[in-house]
Design a protein around this nucleic acid. Sequence first.
DNA 1: CAGCTGACAGATTTCAATATCTGTCAGCTG
DNA 2: CAGCTGACAGATATTGAAATCTGTCAGCTG
Lengths: 195, 195
Amino acid sequence: MAPTSETLTAERILEATEEVLRRHGPAKATVVDVARALGVSHGSVYRHFRTKAALREAVTKRWLDRTSGELSGIAAADRDPEARLRDWLTALFAAKRRKAGDDPELFATYTVLTGENGTAVSEHLADLTAQLTRVIQAGVETGSFTAADPEATARAVFQATARFHDPGYAQEWRQEGVEADFEAVVDLLVRGLRA
Amino acid sequence: MAPTSETLTAERILEATEEVLRRHGPAKATVVDVARALGVSHGSVYRHFRTKAALREAVTKRWLDRTSGELSGIAAADRDPEARLRDWLTALFAAKRRKAGDDPELFATYTVLTGENGTAVSEHLADLTAQLTRVIQAGVETGSFTAADPEATARAVFQATARFHDPGYAQEWRQEGVEADFEAVVDLLVRGLRA
DNA sequence: CAGCTGACAGATTTCAATATCTGTCAGCTG
DNA sequence: CAGCTGACAGATATTGAAATCTGTCAGCTG
């Protein structure tokens, strides 16, 4: 569109790519489209990103980091660990659900990447379980939770709530009654954590 | 192959279909293939099953019922509810994992059907949660479990263990450490159920 | 000379023609 | 006449040729 004659930076490419992905979706978006949107040749894009996969992953990483950021605030808050855990899980579910609804094409990109076992996704998951570990660790310290191995327990909590954050279940998030199901699972897990 | 000249029954068709599915997989298996295997015209198959989807669903139902059967024995056993619950969940995971490994093509058929929201699959899931409800109900009666609404709790337990029985996760069942992850989730859930 | 271009080879996708499949049904057969 | 056949219409899948895309790189440009 507007081939701003500023220097071509990785950042500008990422922005253009996000826009192209939003418009065309992961299946149709091409590197040529991105170059066209920036008013440069596609060779220039390859100067900043070695492959198309790397570009896609960088865009997704940025996008995922926004979610991690929101959540880390909740995880770090100075509050009752149990309430913090509930809020964190609720916020995670809400964030994923919102992204699936508001940005379907970017969400689809993320889903594709999940299936491909991309590094960005593994790191995102590792980051989230690390946040969860900190909350559980805090609970153990205040004596409200019992957990022999907080990291393993965090992984268990994360996996047990997969239905409410794994993109593969996105369709089911629109169904009647998911909220109640979510509450029931969280209640059960919180009870299991209590000292 | 051997066009046995016995009368054509639904049962014989189901057996032939299962064999064809095993050989060709859900994407390539056709009604014509099934008819050929039986030495009849495909019109005859439509005399017993209204559509191809109905045939596929009937085969899957039979296949799923075998799993339900195995599990119902465990659910109904006259034992400590907690041990029963653990055994049941372990058996469910083991059964799904075995099927995914031994019968990849039939398992793929089941996965396709899951995505299509087939009746047979919903019924299978309803059956399994009903079994789970009975175990939890028994635990509540003996006083070892606490659950205000056993059915809702059963659904929560089932959903929390989705990673270990949902066909969408089948690939991950081969990874190192799944067993430990499974144990951690079950431990947490059982603790949450205790009175 | 740092950064960009555009032509290129090989891989992948698209598209339209062709083949096969699903589901129906009039009529054949035992 | 109960049960099966096989021809058929419309839907879906396959195929192979043409178009497009990815990734590279020699050389142009400011």
